[in-house]
């Protein structure tokens, strides 16, 4: 996104349609250039049918989460012991669980939990990683040594076991599951951010900024962070599916959301005892997890093509 020369926006040069304006070879404002770049990205993205599929699924998921109370046929908590373990039918499209709760309604409400976990982890982990990585790369010396050593220690830990340990130490709840996942997810971001920092810290424009008297902190926040963000975003997009699977794994082990919350991993765990005769209890939430993490994967691939064209286009 290089800065375009600014010139008065005269009516004569304004292209006829908005599309043409966006795709103009000679953008006349910084804003036009930026919007144009975004639009170009969107066109690339839109051409990728699978990525679009992922996007559509995720939009539907978000819609479902927002509208959950209105579109769920029943309360996700309403028990009916007389009606337990019913197979999928007109009354219960996806059947009922061991306490006679409607599985569809629980899945719909559960989408909120899934989105909450993924969203929060995807926000926290990269920020921790960005901070540690850039500080290490920029400061160098012993600061770098110490920070990278810590990163290594966390990397050498079996990831799920580390998350398990955190939750076991903090007590099981959604909040702690998010924290544990974030604490185990940051090291790769730190590595990435550090590597990016190393490539740019000696760049001319940094030197220029330094000469102009910019402080270290200002260099870090004002110049280095923005340049690391785009590669981190690609990485986050690609990691989203992994976060969903890890969160479901914690829920499956009883260390995520607590009952009666309809967390999908916990629902599979609930259904495990009934798997032989009442397969739908475990199968349905599993399919939900699969669908959503697949959507994130598709979206991530699409985003990578747009934001990181150097990367592997497969």
């Amino acid at each position: 996104m290089t800065a375009a020369p600014t010139s008065p926006d005269s009516p004569q040069t304004r292209p006829r349609t908005r599309r043409d304006w966006l795709l103009s070879d000679a953008p006349q404002t910084r804003r036009q250039a930026r919007l144009g770049a975004i639009y170009q990205g969107w066109l690339t993205f839109r051409a990728n049918k699978l990525a679009m599929l992922g996007l559509v699924i995720l939009v539907l998921l978000i819609g479902m989460a927002i509208l959950a109370p209105w579109i769920a046929p029943q309360s996700p908590y309403a028990q009916n012991l007389a009606d337990r373990l019913q197979p999928p039918s007109a009354a219960h499209w996806l059947g009922t669980d061991a306490l006679g709760r409607d599985i569809l309604s629980r899945l719909i409400h559960g989408s909120r939990i899934t989105l909450f976990i993924v969203g929060t982890v995807a926000l926290i982990a990269p920020i921790i990683g960005l901070f540690i990585g850039t500080v290490a790369g920029f400061a160098g010396g012993w600061v770098d040594q110490v920070l990278m050593r810590i990163t290594d220690i966390f990397l050498a830990f079996p990831k799920l076991i580390l998350a398990l340990a955190f939750v076991a130490a903090l007590g099981p709840s959604i909040g702690n599951a998010v924290l544990a996942l974030a604490l185990t997810a940051w090291p790769p971001y730190a590595r990435l951010a550090r590597a990016e920092t190393l490539t740019i810290r000696n760049a001319d424009f940094i030197a220029a900024a330094r000469l102009q008297g910019a402080g270290r902190l200002r260099l870090l926040i004002g110049h280095i962070w923005p340049l690391c963000v785009s590669s981190l975003i690609v990485r986050v997009a690609l990691d989203m599916a992994g976060i969903i699977l890890s969160a479901a794994g914690l829920g499956f082990l009883g260390l995520g959301a607590q009952p009666p919350l309809p967390e999908w991993g916990a629902m599979i765990s609930d259904g495990r005892a009934y798997i032989l005769d009442f397969w739908w209890v475990a199968a349905m939430p599993g399919l939900a997890i699969f669908t959503v993490s697949m959507a994130f994967n598709l979206l991530g691939d699409g985003l990578r093509d747009v934001l990181d064209p150097k990367g592997d286009k497969s």
Binding site: Y77, A78, Q79, L81, A98, L99, A168, G171, P172, S173, G254, Q258, P259, P260
Partner: peptide, 24 residues
């Protein structure tokens, strides 16, 4: 957990809220 959840539902009907934390 299942007993706790049925109790939770019954208590809910008389205005008592039960929060459950699962632990080992």
């Amino acid at each position: 957990i299942d007993v706790a959840q049925t109790l939770q539902a019954a208590m809910g009907q008389v205005g008592l809220t039960l929060e459950i934390e699962q632990m080992t």
